[in-house]
Amino acid sequence: MVNIQTVKDKRKGINKSGYNNLAGYAFISPWLIGFIIFTVFPMLLALYFSFTEYDVLSTPKWIGLENYRNMFTSDDRFRTALSVTFQYVFTAIPLRLIFALFIAMLFVKNRKLVPLYRTIYYLPSIIGGSVAVAVMWRQLFGADGALNGVLSALGLLDKQISWIGNPDTSLWTLILLAVWQFGSPMLIFLAGLKQIPSSYYESASIDGANGIQQFVKITLPMLTPIILFNLVMQVISGFMAFTESYIITQGGPFDRTLFYALYLFQQGFQFYNMGYACALAWVLLLIMGVFTAIIFKTSNYWVYSESKGE
């Protein structure tokens, strides 16, 4: 962990640890207080529910590890949801990040028209969760959608197919939707790229480094804290992906787009198995915890920190 590494570093000059403790807690106090009031209680309650049979309508009944046992022994949909989610995370997220970084690189220089371009490429991300997106995606990839319109005009379509509803393609349209909405990591990359002091590039130019060399020697290393951030957050958001399948496919056809978070929601709010849903949530937390921990652990080797002070 970058930050923790920083903390671990015994820095000279700071030995007024009492003052620092006080200042540290003062600065983080908003979060700490909020954490205790608004988060710890609901989280612990959710943990407690995960050991109960809780149908939302009556008081929870303690059943120990039963929910967890069912999940791993007899729940096929749990396995389906996991595999769909892994497919999604391992395809959509890398594509989205690469795309976001690539486009951000194109848009970092303040040339003419670039502000307009940035806006155009950010547009998809601001319609993401709206009701309109479901209708829109159907207009594009439905049986009567624009894609089929183009294909049939080219004579490539032999029968009506709904790309959203077909079991072989539905997950891919959702992945495409996710990649298409690369605006938020792009924006973060842009901000990160802009933070790299231009003097670095100037001196590299003087040394005769070309574009690719500059990218590898300066841009990438300087951007690693931001890459780390985007990687961690996108992996988390990938595992928790919900809205797309909730409003577009509802997990169908036959669970081909059953995202983990959607399954959890179905169990909790549609089947009224809130206890089971909470157990699912904690298992997801553990899975994501492992991934995040791996990313953070390896980050020591690839994240460059300006503030480490070599």
Binding site: G142, A143, I164, G165, N166, P253
Partner: peptide, 11 residues
Amino acid sequence: IPLPEIRNEIK
């Protein structure tokens, strides 16, 4: 009758 993928689009 159409395949489910066509019917499912009807909301």
